[in-house]
C-alpha cells in the first residue's frame, strides 16, 4: 500500500468515527458506561414549525364537493407570462402559482393543459434551483396518464413535494417561503373563481377556514423575513389576514364522541367560522388584486 492510499483510508476512518458522536461519546463506548443522566441537562430551546397544507388539498376538496365537470382554465396564469418573471421574487412566487395551476389541471383532468403547465414549472424550477426535483421523465409519466386524472394528480403532487424538499434540503428558506405563498394564494384564487357566495356552501366555508392557514403562512414567512422579498410578501399577506380577521368565530358546542370500538376518534370543541357576503366579497377582491400584482396580469 503506498503512502497516498494509506493516508486516504486513515482519513476516511477518522472521519467515520468522528461522525459517530465525537470524542466524549467514543470514550463512553470504550468504557461501556451508559449515557449519564444524573447531571441535569439544559433542554434545547423549543421550536415551533408552522405548516401549510398543499394547494392540491384545497383543489381536491373543491372537485369533491361539486366541481367534477369543471374544465375552465381561463383564470389560470398563462404559461406565456413566464418570460415576464425576471427577478428572484417573481420567479419564486410564480413557480408556486404555476405549480398550483398544474395541480388544478391534473386534478380536474385537463390533460393537455397539464403538459403545458408542467413544461412551464420545469423551466421555472430550473431557474430557482429545483431542477433535480423535477426530472424530465415526469413528462413521460404525465403523457402516458393524460386521461387519468387521479394518476395525474399523484404525479403533480410528487412534483410539488419534491420541489418543496429540494428547497428545504438546500436551505433555500426564503425561496421556499415565496413558493408556498404563491401556491397557497393561487389555490384560493382558483377557489374564488369557481365558487359564488352561498351561505353554508362547503367551498365558502373552506375559504373562511383559510383564516387559520393564512395565520400559519404569515408565521412561516416571519421566519424568513430578513429576506427583503419575503418581508414584502409577508406585509401583503398581513393585509389580507386583516380582512380574514373580520370573519367571526363562535364556539362549537359539540363534544368529543364516537362509538366504542371506533378506530377514529372525534375531537370536539373548537371554533366555527361565520363569513358574511360582504366580508367574503372584500376578501375575494383582495385576493384577486394581490394575485394579479404577482402575476403581472389584470
Amino acid at each position: 500500500m503506498n503512502k497516498s492510499t494509506l493516508l486516504f483510508f486513515s482519513a476516511i476512518t477518522a472521519f467515520t468515527f468522528s461522525n459517530c458522536g465525537g470524542g466524549e461519546k467514543s470514550e463512553e463506548i470504550e468504557t461501556g458506561d451508559s449515557v449519564k443522566t444524573e447531571e441535569p441537562k439544559v433542554n434545547p430551546v423549543s421550536e415551533t414549525f408552522f405548516q401549510v397544507p398543499s394547494p392540491g388539498e384545497m383543489l381536491t376538496f373543491i372537485k369533491m364537493v361539486g366541481g367534477k365537470n369543471n374544465k375552465n382554465t381561463t383564470f389560470l396564469n398563462s404559461p406565456a407570462n413566464e418570460k415576464n418573471y425576471t427577478d428572484n421574487k417573481s420567479k419564486s412566487i410564480n413557480f408556486g402559482i404555476y405549480s398550483c395551476d398544474l395541480s388544478y389541471c391534473s386534478i380536474f383532468g385537463i390533460g393537455s393543459e397539464s403538459l403545458k403547465y408542467f413544461k412551464t414549472v420545469k423551466t421555472m424550477g430550473d431557474q430557482i434551483g429545483v431542477s433535480t426535483a423535477i426530472k424530465p421523465e415526469v413528462l413521460k409519466r404525465l403523457e402516458s396518464n393524460i386521461g387519468v386524472s387521479d394518476s395525474l394528480a399523484v404525479i403533480t403532487d410528487d412534483v410539488y413535494f419534491s420541489s418543496f424538499e429540494a428547497l428545504e434540503d438546500s436551505k433555500q428558506g426564503p425561496t421556499l417561503a415565496l413558493v408556498v405563498a404563491g401556491g397557497w394564494l393561487e389555490s384560493i384564487f382558483i377557489a374564488t373563481n369557481l365558487a359564488k357566495f352561498e351561505e353554508k356552501s362547503p367551498v365558502v366555508e373552506r375559504l373562511a377556514d383559510q383564516k387559520y392557514t393564512l395565520e400559519n403562512l404569515v408565521e412561516f414567512l416571519k421566519k424568513h423575513e430578513s429576506d427583503a422579498n419575503v418581508a414584502s410578501v409577508k406585509a401583503d399577506f398581513e393585509g389580507l389576514l386583516a380582512e380574514f380577521n373580520k370573519i367571526s368565530e363562535k364556539d362549537v358546542t359539540a363534544t368529543a364522541s364516537g362509538k366504542e370500538g371506533d378506530k377514529t376518534a372525534m375531537l370536539g370543541g373548537g371554533k366555527q367560522l361565520f363569513i358574511t357576503k360582504e366580508v367574503y366579497e372584500t376578501i375575494v377582491g383582495k385576493i384577486k388584486t394581490l394575485r394579479n400584482s404577482y402575476t403581472l396580469t389584470k
Binding site: 434545547p44 414549525f49 405548516q51 403532487d157 413535494f161 418543496f164
Partner: peptide, 21 residues
C-alpha cells in the same frame, strides 16, 4: 400524504412543536 408532515433532528429532552391546520 399531507404536506404538513415534517422530520427533524431531536436531542434528548428536546421539545418541538408543529402547528398545522
Amino acid at each position: 400524504y399531507n404536506a404538513q408532515s415534517k422530520s427533524g433532528l431531536f436531542n434528548q429532552g428536546m421539545v418541538s412543536k408543529l402547528r398545522c391546520v
